[in-house]
Design a protein around this nucleic acid. Sequence first.
RNA 1: UACCCGGUGGUGUAAUUGGUAACACAGAGGUUUUUGGUACCUCCAUUCAUGGUUCGAGUCCAUGCCGGGUAGCCA
Length: 563
Amino acid sequence: MSEQNDNQQKLDFVRQIVADDCQSGKWDGRVVTRFPPEPNGYLHIGHAKSICLNFGIASEFGGKCHLRFDDTNPEKEEQEYVDSIIEDVKWLGWDWGQNLFFGSDYFQQMYDWAVELIKKGKAYVCDLTGEEIRQTRGTPTQPGKDSPYRNRSVDENLDLFEKMRKGEFPDGSKTLRAKIDMASPNFNLRDPVMYRIVHASHHRTADNWCIYPMYDWAHGLEDSIEKITHSICTLEFENHRPLYDWFLDQLGIYHPQQIEFARLNLTYTVMSKRKLLKLVQEKLVAGWDDPRMPTIGGMRRRGFSPSAIRNFCDKISVNKFNSTIDFALLQHCLREDLNKTSPRVMAVLNPVKVVIENYPEDKVEYLDAINNPEDPTAGSRQIPFSREIYIERDDFMEDAPKKFFRLTPGREVRLRYAYFIICTSVIKDPAGNITEIHCTYDPATKGGDAPDGRKVKSTLHWVCAKNAIDAEARMYEHLFTKENPDDVEEGKDFTAYLNPNSLNVLSNCKVEPYLKDVKSLSRWQFERLGYFCVDTDSKDGKLIFNRTATLRDEWAKIQQNSK
RNA sequence: UACCCGGUGGUGUAAUUGGUAACACAGAGGUUUUUGGUACCUCCAUUCAUGGUUCGAGUCCAUGCCGGGUAGCCA
């Protein structure tokens, strides 16, 4: 058993079940879980919760976790999704070893078991149309009606089922149904469909099959074949568990335990595949990996690290009731990791030129800058300094309120790793916009400390004008303005709450020359601004950064509160 | 109005399984600081309601209230 359990750390209810089973020897000490995505879309942060749960349990209890594609619906599934899912799970840092499986590999076995159920008189071929099945299913308060085909003979069922498989019937003309109880209070037991006829080519089995198993029939069999011990799924399958159990019991085959947990909800985001697809299709975002999307691909491109996501999944734990996690918790996990791992660098997003009047015209000197104060092994680098530099426009105010500590006429501030400067004058264009700020510097403060011990209230980041590299920064905010975009008013849909400011492109940024050869997707902290990640669109000569997250910002809070 | 599941601070999870509500996030205030970052400190709930069992209930029982899920030939 794992260290975590030896230490008697709090176990969530799923892990508690697994721990109890290990203790009682229910599965002979085996722990086998699985992550079973349908390859019909991209993975998102909600899937990450499930992935971390299943792979996490396997690794903590010395078991295995299978990656299994539940590919039983050829009309929706594609190889492209299989590839992206594999990439995403790997990126998150999980390893399934040899245990990569596909539900479609079990089609023959499933078929044979269906035949067995027919022989036992537990399944029948039904000629009702979809509409008729719906009409005879009954309502919550009324039982359904038996299908007129319910009592066909075993031989007839066997014959018809074989013909279904051979392609002798058109799509939708017949189904194979389990013969259970049309009066069951649980709809799932009102003679559920096991097979439907679909003449569609499957991404793996091509045209070998024209009948495809339904989820309820297929899923338990897949679990059984793979000798899964704990089949963990989301809450909406709770009502399906009796059916999961029924199929396995009728067949008398290996029977895993299904356990349901609540799916993840996050403030300011939508999680359903349908809604995410709509955002992509209607071009409300740039694609599945748009950095504003909660998809794993989007988050990767935004600059999230796998460990930030995994820590987040640990912290939220799992439970059986619906809850909505504050986006701020995700952000906290992100910053916690990025703070420790991201090299610091200086970049000016919204530049204004500063001329240091008493600094020699042609001089360039190199100053020592620490790469990461949280990580001594990250070392330091040399940054160029000269008479003209850029600072952030927001770091200067002509008429500053008392709580503004930054540059303002007559006040001394520090340029990080460089010198103290004092603003002496401001140059404006005819329209009144500031074009240059003139300052003087104190040569004795080189490196950022005054030998006489005098202090300054603030430190500014800057970039040497002569050596600066141009860059673009894509500034992101929440995709939605509303905490719960799913909570819609009459006549609106969730897209009504899209944040018009969710993307703001700054194309005139200046970054220090150290960033010349950055690698795609590398993560940096721009001092005093936030964490940034090199976008996949970034090229030599055209640097593009995505703002992953801002730093916590006291000054922004003060401004906000004074409004 | 059928069946299933669930209710602990603003949010998310804990509570030695009946022993006197803990941790984290958010928020507020403060200390430190060459990032208004980081780190650190302080403050912020008597557990949906009402009854009951008990020396003792967030934990057990009853009733009620509230929330979620379920009527695809989707998963």
